[in-house]
Write a protein that binds this DNA or RNA. Structure first.
Lengths: 361, 361
DNA sequence: CTGTTAGCGCTTTCAC
DNA sequence: GTGAAAGCGCTAACAG
């Protein structure tokens, strides 16, 4: 029990000396090799514990080209969708002795590039990525050069990689069918159509309307929110609800737009669903707890994370099949925030944006 | 522009050969040394780009003992408080060329230990930690052995390290004063008192009551939520509000208890603030957007993150002063969820827990 | 200003 | 079953 909190970290050489064996033997014990006598193994283990030895990962990685570390790139840690996915990834990875290195790009391509370069420098064994912008050539190039297995989550980019996709169309169509059945014809839609999820949802929105014989009013579609976050949800919702013929129902897809749109609805003091049917997406907690509980499109991102991790582990194990794609469903969860369209439509009272925060005295 | 996407990563030796210089020269260029002629620098840079060279971080770290990487340990990525702190830390670190390696322990000490060991193996240059449990001896031991600068955020653990603390007492006392002034005497309190924030808040709660001459009713205090998350908030709130003499006001401190408690209030269909004054903490977004907006204790965690990162960078720069402690204030943000106590107190109607989610047909 | 060289701590043949 | 030795890719003296 000689603990040396000051002295620099013990090396394999010191452990070897302490145990009276060679460095090679210590390495074999550390690596879990079987071809070691029980007595020496015990002696080495004791020495390791005594010196609180931790193998130097850098040295090991340099020798073996294996870091037992996976990198995960997400655009935003403030979005519950990604937080859940991270939890799922970590769950599977931890069971297999891998560490997860999570990085949020804060929705900036430049940060994304920085991370990918750092990942390459650190020889991460694999990557799970959900990029900010599918169309970024720079990101694509960086990804191409990684030289390690990659799993792409819910993004369409040209890359030799496994994919986990979410099925966005069905839930969106179910939602539209529901709203249309309730008599809604003017349905506002706030989202970002930059990437796969938004693109599919926009397509489903248009298709559903057309199929129902309802003219698509471009003014009701605010699908340019990429990179603008909750503020876009707030401003567009405010605009939709106060300018001209307001929609009778509003869909805000994406956790930030969901939040932002709800904020505008609160500021206008509209009652849900009496004055406005409101639908969110991607934030189960908010949907459950807002007053009233809000109908939303949701998906099991934890499971998506698990799947992504498994695909990656499979590659680590040497699987060399062509890229695979796994598809995970999403659900429409009905809550109290939508209702039949009122026969008499009111034009919402135009109020000023209200600061709802009063500082403590 | 000879790109070799297949070939393994270029080494410094290949770059040297391509540029017709020695490895040492390449290393100097990569390291940004000034003592290099402009012509050779240009040649080397060209070769690097051509081979899309990225220095091997493992090799570099092994040689220099510097990884330009900081580790950050938080208990829960689902808590907005930590997400904001991470953003602040990253902001400052990125400006100084450091990468941030974030790890969530999912409130499990065992995961925390795993991370700390991994951090030691990877020679992270420093750590910013918010531990799950201040009393965990195992965590303390692990931290002691790190051998690199550490900044502790809002936790009281015996450790030779810089600290950033949040001032919890004043906001809590301001809140209690406000509630008491509104006539509340039975004030429920749901939280976890395991760590510094909870402990201080509980103390402030008691003190405020005693100072006002109000007997502290232990049955109103549910301060054992550590590790039990939102479910604890829900069950205790439900219990408080349905058993015996219900409180007229309820404080749920901690983002998960805030959420959980609000869920119970929704299930009981109590109107805020008419039937119950309700106060949350640590989740500004939820507080802003719940119907009605909810009075809450909040703090600028992004700034806390910035401070923590600066303390760490200061140590990297060689500052050897004794440990410092920085204190960041917190605020009581008044919103519409609290009000004067009603002269006639109703006993809340006892209802069953309601599942509020109806699956799509 | 630039080339040469000796390791950093570890794993992995290859002998014994 | 164990030891000895050769590097992995890089940086930091030390020469020149």
């Amino acid at each position: 029990m000689t603990s040396n909190p000051i002295r620099p970290r013990a090396t394999i050489r010191e452990v070897a000396a302490a145990a009276g064996v060679s460095m090679g033997t210590v390495s074999r014990v550390a690596g879990g090799s079987t071809r070691i006598s029980e007595v020496t193994r015990a002696r080495v283990l004791a020495a390791m514990k005594d010196l609180s030895y931790q193998p130097n990962a850098a040295a090991r990685a340099m020798r073996t080209n294996i870091s037992k570390t996976v990198g995960m790139l997400v655009p935003d840690l403030g979005c519950p969708v990604f937080v859940r996915m991270i939890a799922g990834v970590k769950e599977v990875l931890a069971q297999n002795g891998y560490m997860l290195f999570t990085f949020s790009s804060e929705s900036e391509v430049s940060q994304e590039i920085t991370f990918l370069q750092a990942a390459r420098q650190r020889q991460l064994d694999g990557l799970i990525v959900s990029v900010v912008d599918e169309t970024s050539a720079e990101t694509a190039r960086e990804l191409q050069m990684m030289g390690v297995p990659i799993v792409v989550v819910d993004r369409e980019i040209k890359l030799d990689a496994d994919r986990v996709f979410v099925e966005h169309t069905q839930a969106m169509e179910a939602l539209m069918a529901q709203l249309i059945a309730m008599g809604h014809e003017r349905i506002g839609f706030v989202t970002a159509a930059l990437n796969r999820p938004g693109r599919l949802r926009v397509a489903a929105y248009r298709n559903a309307l057309q199929r129902a014989g309802i003219t698509v009013d471009p003014d009701l579609m605010r699908t340019d929110g990429a990179g603008r976050g909750a503020a876009y949800g707030t401003s567009e919702t405010y605009d939709l609800l106060t300018n001209g013929a307001a929609p009778t129902a509003l869909i805000a897809a994406g956790s930030d737009f969901f939040f932002g749109a709800l904020k505008a609805v609160r500021a206008l003091d509209l009652s849900i669903p009496d004055q406005l049917s409101f639908v969110g997406a991607d934030d189960t907690e908010l949907a459950e707890i807002a007053g009233p509980p809000i109908t939303a499109i949701e998906r099991d991102m934890r499971e998506v994370g698990r799947m992504a991790a498994k695909l990656l582990l499979d590659r680590f194990a040497g699987n060399a099949l062509p890229p695979r794609t796994i598809i995970q469903s999403s659900q429409l969860v009905l809550r109290k925030s939508i209702g039949k369209v009122q026969p008499t439509r009111r034009a919402p009272a135009i109020k000023k944006h209200v600061e709802q925060t009063t500082p403590a005295e």
